[in-house]
């Protein structure tokens, strides 16, 4: 499951829109990742600030 660096995350929701497993959800400033994550790394490649890590 990917790791979210909460100090870096800008809670923009951009990663949510590219997750093929629909594993990401953003509510206000809280990005969460569910069990559905398959470590594909697409969200990591997208994140403009590098807040995600496989």
């Amino acid at each position: 499951m990917i790791k979210i660096n909460r100090e870096r995350c800008m809670y923009c929701g951009g990663c949510v829109g590219v997750c093929p497993a629909n594993a990401l959800t953003l509510n206000e400033t809280m990005l969460t990742v569910s069990e559905a994550c398959n470590d594909c790394g697409i969200c990591v490649k997208f994140c403009p600030v590098g807040a995600l890590e496989v």
Partner: peptide, 23 residues
């Protein structure tokens, strides 16, 4: 918006592809 879950719940193809999605 880009996070669209509504589309996914309704079975529509709202997933964005990295090749067509500016960071």
């Amino acid at each position: 918006g880009v996070e669209s879950k509504v589309g996914r719940w309704a079975g529509l193809k709202t997933l964005n592809r990295l090749t067509d999605y500016h960071s």
